[in-house]
Write a protein that binds this DNA or RNA. Structure first.
Lengths: 204, 204
DNA sequence: TGATTAATTGTAACGCGTTACTAGTAAACT
DNA sequence: AGTTTACTAGTAACGCGTTACAATTAATCA
């Protein structure tokens, strides 16, 4: 066994190149015509391959959507950084970051739906989100902000994670549960910031 | 115009009866075989009507899913109340409620997906969630808990809403973004409770 | 050249949510 | 009875994600 003849396996560079090409088209499609336009059949037509070829290169649709997540998250992170740029004070920086983060997802419910509400993600153990370190860094950013804003160190990771989850939760509630008359998002973020920089509370 | 002949419109009671019957079957289907089993065609077969008849009585699938939301939320609220029952101290009651709430959605990711991640909900102005006051009361419960646990009054609504959003956010993050190594849910809820009863901070 | 193997294509199918439209039935009227 | 009207059943269609499988093309060997 282990014959040496026949067509050789595809170059690894070519594999990545095709995946990138598909991701590009998917992104363009999403940006131009929205979420519903990004279908496997449509995407294949756009790329110029047969619909079933996509399944040879991706595990399924969510495997393609992950690239869109990364793009949207990058856009969001860039906006946060831009709004923070002129601010010096650490607490004020954290405040601006938090406000921008929440506002972004409320102002772009379609993006929120894409990133945080793509169904079929809950089940299955397939890795879903962090395809590379860049995406992870967008979350890490808040850890740094919290660290800088805290008067005393300790609980940085816990507070940052709680902050992130809560921010996403605020966006989720505003975007989905519309009948309930929520308090303003800005008021809620203010509450959250009180949680971070406020009580000395627990810790060593 | 306005002829008096012909078959009279359906009795309002019959309308509600049919809707209730469908909701019952949908619920049984969901409880027995999970989310994916609740399809329009399958549900119609279960009810004993043609698939298209459902569309004469409901706006679409999400209009049926709303009844499942109500049921799941009721189950959750009942569990919260049961766990709170033996506790007297207001702060401890709030703590138990918060923990139970978050744990419920983490322990039942399928329920979470059903209630908070049903797609197609974001768009359109159709009322989505609160079909009756009972569902709303499950959220109101936390307002009462917060009020009782607060040393001084003020900001009850804001703190309760922030708490609810944050709890849901924690569950969402745990259920969807698995690659990121989140802090424990219990630690996060503890952080949140610090937000409520902790800092005297803002307010009158 | 022909053989071998990888990759792609094509076609069909399944069930899904949803829309449109036609035919049929049920209950009131004259 | 016959007519009018409200409702239901039925059928077909569209595009969707996905699986399965046969047919085809492409690239490397001997």
């Amino acid at each position: 066994m282990a014959r040496m003849s026949g067509r050789p396996p595809r170059n690894e560079g070519e594999i990545l190149q095709f995946r990138f090409k598909v991701a590009q088209h998917a992104l363009a499609l999403y940006r131009a015509e929205g979420f519903d336009a990004v279908s496997m059949r449509r995407l294949a037509k756009e790329v110029g391959c047969a619909p079933m070829t996509l399944y040879a290169h991706f595990d399924g649709k969510i495997d393609i959507l992950r690239h869109l997540w990364a793009d949207v998250l990058a856009e969001m992170a860039q906006l946060v950084r831009k709004n923070m740029a002129p601010i010096e004070n650490p607490a004020a920086r954290l405040q601006m970051a938090t406000r921008t983060f929440v506002s972004y997802w409320i102002d772009h419910p379609d993006h929120f739906r894409l990133v945080f509400m793509s169904n079929e993600v809950v089940r299955s153990d397939v890795r879903t989100f962090m395809e590379d370190e860049k995406t992870l860094a967008h979350f890490q950013m808040f850890s740094d902000l919290v660290r800088d804003a805290l008067p005393t160190e300790g609980d940085v990771k816990a507070k940052a994670d709680t902050l992130i989850s809560a921010m996403i939760g605020i966006a989720l509630c505003h975007n989905t549960i519309r009948d309930y008359s929520w308090e303003t998002a800005s008021i809620m973020t203010e509450q959250l910031l009180g949680l971070i920089v406020g009580s000395p509370g627990n810790g060593a």
